[in-house]
């Protein structure tokens, strides 16, 4: 009985990103960096050692001029539910020190920076490359530490970090609701920094289990797809695209497959 009740109230936060609307402007990336105290270096052109919890990919259809098409695809951590949605996401199940965890109440995959000792097994496990390692100590030019937010701790060198769905915003919203005597929070009270900043309104964030939230209907769109669904990672990021080649780019297909 108790189980059933807690199951009913379990949330599953997720995103629907409309690729038809996304313009590749990069606001989501910077909104995320600004919200989450993401550091920067003098040279950030080596993208494989550049921390961007939200990263916008540029996809092409591979055709030559003038039939070329490009599409932008913002990619945060997919907050995988794992096989059967049991919370055994690829990264959570491998972390030896329980530094990354699947929150059954929200469906959010957390990362505890002070617990992580930097073995990077989670990075090897993540097929989305959504995890980033602090190869360097974060350094801000003198005076620039002023803008650092106390809501997200600054990560030191040698640990892994990744998108948290701005979990601190969820906590703040919950706290606020608690003080105001409410048991639950509204859809607008908890939004990620990227969804909030997106000028195109391409990112919709909410509880995938709550029929009152916009994402609930959006994810059922016939143009909706997720990345690498065949691996049974059960990601919580849905993408929408009216273009077939983009939807197909979301997963791997055998050569003879239609």
């Amino acid at each position: 009985m108790k189980e059933e009740k807690s199951d009913k109230s379990a949330k599953k936060f997720g995103m629907v990103i409309d690729l038809d609307k996304c313009t590749g402007c990069g606001s989501c990336m910077v909104a995320c960096m600004a919200e989450n105290n993401v550091p920067f270096k003098e040279d950030e052109s080596k993208k494989l050692v550049s921390i961007t919890w939200m990263r916008v990919y540029r996809l092409t259809n591979g055709k030559s001029f003038p039939d070329t098409e490009i599409c932008y695809l913002p990619k945060p951590c997919q907050h995988c539910g794992g096989k059967g949605e049991h919370g055994h996401s690829p990264c959570v199940s491998v972390c030896p020190a329980t530094a990354t965890d699947y929150n059954k109440e929200t469906g959010i995959v957390s990362q505890i920076y002070t617990r992580c000792f930097g073995c990077r097994y989670c990075m090897a496990a993540c097929p989305y490359h959504a995890r980033y390692f602090n190869w360097w100590d974060p350094v801000w030019p003198k005076g620039m530490e002023e803008y650092l937010s106390p809501n997200v701790s600054v990560r030191m060198r040698g640990v892994v970090e990744k998108c948290s769905f701005c979990f601190h915003r969820y906590q703040l919203a919950k706290d606020k609701a608690y003080y105001e005597g409410r048991s639950d929070i509204g859809e607008n009270e908890y939004q990620t920094a990227c969804a909030q900043a997106c000028p195109a309104g391409a990112i919709t964030f909410g509880d995938l289990n709550d029929s009152g939230h916009a994402v609930y209907e959006l994810k059922k769109n016939k143009n909706a797809f997720r990345l690498l669904e065949r691996l049974q990672t059960n990601p919580k990021i849905y993408y929408l695209s009216s273009r077939q080649w983009i939807r197909r780019a979301g997963d791997n297909y055998l050569k003879n497959e239609k």
Partner: peptide, 28 residues
């Protein structure tokens, strides 16, 4: 600590661009 767009503003309605979001890096 953070610049955000104003929701309901007739120009940007909550949206904000890369440069606008980086404003504090200019300030500090």
């Amino acid at each position: 600590v953070k610049i955000e767009g104003i929701e309901g503003h007739p120009v940007n309605d909550g949206g904000i661009c890369v440069l606008g979001l980086s404003g504090l890096q200019l300030l500090y």
